[in-house]
């Protein structure tokens, strides 16, 4: 096992070969009657819990979702690898919407306030969560951020997650939808390599499309891989630099925002 991060040799493949890990027989589960001692004269007993490890995160997420709903807020969880152009895309989106919508941003990064600064330069309120060593935002972190910011009433809250295609997939933040960003400078097979994230996302923004003429990236292949993992995923080809696809993305936002407003109490 890797001693720096604990990743297990049992699940690691090099050149398609499983690396030998710990030996020994797998643990067998023997159900016991709850509350009964294991053996005679043994001071131990069995406590049956059957509790979901993510239940606490789920409870915070439900509270966040309730807060968004009662304020008519469309909350989106933006997820991608580092360097996919999430922040650039977000800046362009905010500039397009800021005169007509109430907007706010929560930025998640391990370190630095750089992304929040880029957002604030557009005039939109941004709050930075630094996760330290953490590799994802969780619903409790978002709840804490929400308490410290002005809520975008009947508007849109963008939550830019830590750049990571693995860990954020498991953590519901209370968002209406996860929006995955994949850029043309990455590999087409990322949806297959990180299927949890592309399964969890409702929309895929294929970013940096202005670079397609200079790359060997097969965009149709990337789209077919994403649909293999998630046949219902909506895909928009976009470029934060040239503005291609921005109209379609803004229309998607508007349609979903109307949906959020409809659910808000009058």
């Amino acid at each position: 096992m890797c001693m720096s991060c604990g990743c297990g040799a049992n699940g690691v493949f090099v050149r398609g070969k499983r690396q030998s890990g710990k030996t020994g027989a797998p643990a067998r589960f023997r159900p016991h009657a709850a509350g009964t001692p294991l053996k005679d004269n043994d001071a131990t007993r069995i406590v049956r819990l059957e509790q979901d490890i993510l239940a606490k995160n789920g409870a915070y997420a439900a509270r966040n979702r309730e807060l968004f709903s009662s304020n008519g807020i469309l909350a989106l969880n933006l997820v991608s690898s580092p360097g996919s152009g999430k922040t650039a895309l977000l800046v362009r989106t905010l500039q397009a919407l800021k005169n007509t919508r109430s907007l706010a941003v929560i930025e998640g990064d391990q370190q630095t306030d750089n992304d929040a600064e880029r957002i604030r330069a557009t005039g939109i309120e941004a709050i930075q969560i630094n996760t330290g060593k953490g590799c994802h935002l969780d619903a409790e972190m978002v709840e804490r951020a929400l308490r410290q910011m002005r809520l975008p009433q009947n508007g849109i809250l963008f939550i830019e997650n830590v750049g990571n295609l693995v860990c954020p997939a498991a953590f519901d933040l209370g968002e209406a939808a996860k929006v995955a960003v994949l850029s043309a400078t990455e590999g087409e097979d990322k949806p297959l390599k990180y299927p949890d994230m592309f399964r969890a996302a409702r929309l895929l923004l294929l970013n940096k499309c202005d670079l397609l003429p200079y790359l060997v990236f097969d965009i149709a292949l990337a789209e077919s891989y994403a649909r293999r993992v998630n046949p219902d995923i909506r895909i928009i080809r976009i470029s934060a630099t040239s503005g291609e696809g921005m109209g379609e993305w803004l229309a998607w936002l508007e349609a979903h925002q109307k949906e959020s407003n409809r659910h808000a109490p009058a």
Binding site: A43, I46, L49, Q51, D52, I53, N230, P231
Partner: peptide, 21 residues
Amino acid sequence: GSYGMQVVAGDAMRVKELEVE
């Protein structure tokens, strides 16, 4: 042959039981 299998089991993460004293 179609894609998009819906997960019906095998995505849980649970604390099942404890042996305690």
